[in-house]
Simulated scan of single mutants.
Amino acid sequence: MKHETITPEPSSPAQEFVLQLSSTRRGARLARTLAVQQLTEWCGLPYESDTARSVALVTAELASNAITHGHLPGRDFRLTLLLLPHAVRIEVTDTRPDRLPPKPPLAPTDATSGRGLLLIEAYANRWGCSIRDAYTKTVWAEMAITGPCELSQ
């Protein structure tokens, strides 16, 4: 199963990028843009590559969920990217540990929203949620990277 509720920290990353962003649509848009920019800087991938587009989509969904379901007034969310051997881990930390993401439905519904976790399930190799303290939760996704960004360490 790809979805995990609690997971240990990944092994030490080769590269790390951390940024605090406002819990607004603009903050979510910036998260998507900066995630792709950082990945292309680390790996030399074109912005229009399938990998960059997948990272953009997953980052956008995680950030959108943080500002929609994990927002408290006056509190930001944190974007963390970790470059791991053969994968990139996208983490979005928000201020609502009491609101855990539900498991995605098995079959599509007629609802006009609520499909973000299905997209994450489809694009990520694995994803889950971690609660490290009483004030925050982190929803994360790991996506395989092949090509120039693979680390042999």
Rank of each mutant, 00 (worst) to 15 (best):
G70Y: 03
I120A: 03
T93C: 13
K137L: 12
L34K: 12
Y47G: 01
R115I: 10
A141I: 11
Q37N: 13
A144P: 09
L84Q: 09
E91P: 04
D50T: 08
R75D: 04
R89Q: 14
F77T: 13
V92F: 06
A141P: 06
E48S: 12
L45V: 05
F17Q: 07
L39Y: 00
Q38W: 04
P13M: 06
A122C: 05
L19A: 13
L84H: 12
R25P: 13
R53E: 08
T109M: 01
R89H: 07
V36H: 08
T95Q: 13
G114V: 13
T68F: 02
W42Q: 07
Y47R: 14
Q38S: 09
R126S: 12
N125S: 15
I131T: 15
A28Y: 04
L21A: 13
P46Y: 02
D50Y: 00
T68H: 14
D76H: 15
V36K: 10
V55D: 00
K137T: 11
G70L: 04
P102H: 10
T68E: 05
P105H: 13
P97K: 10
P104C: 06
Q20V: 14
H3A: 11
S23C: 08
L45T: 03
D98L: 09
T93N: 07
P102S: 11
H3Q: 13
C149Q: 04
L100P: 04
T7N: 09
E9R: 06
R32V: 01
I67P: 00
A141F: 09
L34W: 13
G114W: 09
A56S: 14
P104W: 01
E9Y: 06
E142G: 04
I90P: 08
E121K: 11
I145H: 08
Y135W: 11
M143C: 06
A63F: 03
R132C: 00
V58K: 05
L39H: 01
H69V: 02
Q20T: 12
P104E: 03
L79R: 11
E41A: 09
R78C: 09
I120P: 03
D98H: 11
E91Y: 01
T5L: 15
P10L: 05
E121V: 00
D133Q: 15
H86V: 07
E61G: 00
L34A: 08
L62R: 02
C43W: 01
I67S: 01
L84T: 11
P13T: 07
L21Y: 14
A124E: 01
I6S: 14
L119A: 05
E61V: 02
T59A: 05
T7F: 05
